[in-house]
Computed example of a mutant assay.
Amino acid sequence: MDVTDNKPKWSRRKEARPTEIIEAALHVFIEHGFSAAKLDDVAKRAGIVKGTLYRYYDTKEDLFRAVVQVALEGHLQGIEQATTAFRGALGELVPVLLRRVAEGMGESRVPALARLVISESRSFPDLARIWHDNVVAKMLMLLTGLIAEAQARGEVRPGDPTVHAFSIIGPMVMALLFHEVLDTDSNHAPDLGTLARQHAETVLRGLMVASGDPSVL
């Protein structure tokens, strides 16, 4: 007889617990908001006792940080890997980057988490810091660095690289919030893939240096 058959169920599931807790917390946070979310509800949804939850996360803020990191891990890693490995011109990268952002928005809980942070960040400033450190700062640093490199090569017009980065990613963020807040009540929610393609064409016309342009000499 296999000795593992005698192990209790909770022992065999120990390694899966953090994943189950985070998945349960994601649902509870999105359904109830951060302030109204109760760790009792998270534990119940995960099928554990509340004391077990505290073995992994000391506070509700710690749990939210883990939720954000896991929810964004695959999406951000894919974008980071694609941009880090890219060796072409910025004009070739921007359409790819915006398409990846659009795909991630449509397939993840990122919009719901963003809405939660915006709605509760005044009462819970730590939420904004968690979102900034795990999402905003990473994306802006990555894109700002690429723009600065493109400026050094003479591909992109002069200007603050961070401001240029906001001009590239800003409409996608607005569309994310539009879909999450007004999608069911509005006929004007943009198709994310179409927005990504059209915005890439539009913003690159303004950012990229045209051959022989005297304004950048």
Rank of each mutant, 00 (worst) to 15 (best):
T4I: 15
P8S: 08
W10P: 15
W10E: 13
R13K: 08
A16P: 09
I21S: 00
I22W: 03
I30Y: 11
E31Y: 01
H32E: 10
G33S: 08
F34V: 07
D40H: 08
A43I: 02
R55F: 08
Y57G: 00
D58C: 09
K60E: 06
D62S: 09
D62R: 14
L63W: 07
A66V: 02
V67L: 07
V68P: 09
V70E: 12
E73S: 15
H75D: 15
G78E: 03
I79L: 05
E80D: 11
A82C: 14
T84Q: 14
T84D: 14
A85W: 02
G88K: 01
G91F: 01
G91Q: 00
V101Q: 12
G106E: 01
R109N: 11
R115I: 00
L116N: 05
R122T: 13
L127Y: 04
R129L: 09
I130D: 03
W131Q: 09
K138G: 07
M139E: 08
L146P: 00
Q151R: 07
R153Q: 10
G154P: 01
E155L: 10
V156C: 12
V156W: 13
D160P: 09
H164D: 12
A165M: 13
F166Q: 13
I168Y: 02
M172Q: 06
M174P: 05
L176P: 03
F178W: 11
L182R: 03
D183R: 10
A189V: 12
A189C: 13
Q198Y: 09
H199I: 13
T202V: 06
L204I: 05
G206D: 06
L207H: 05
A210T: 10
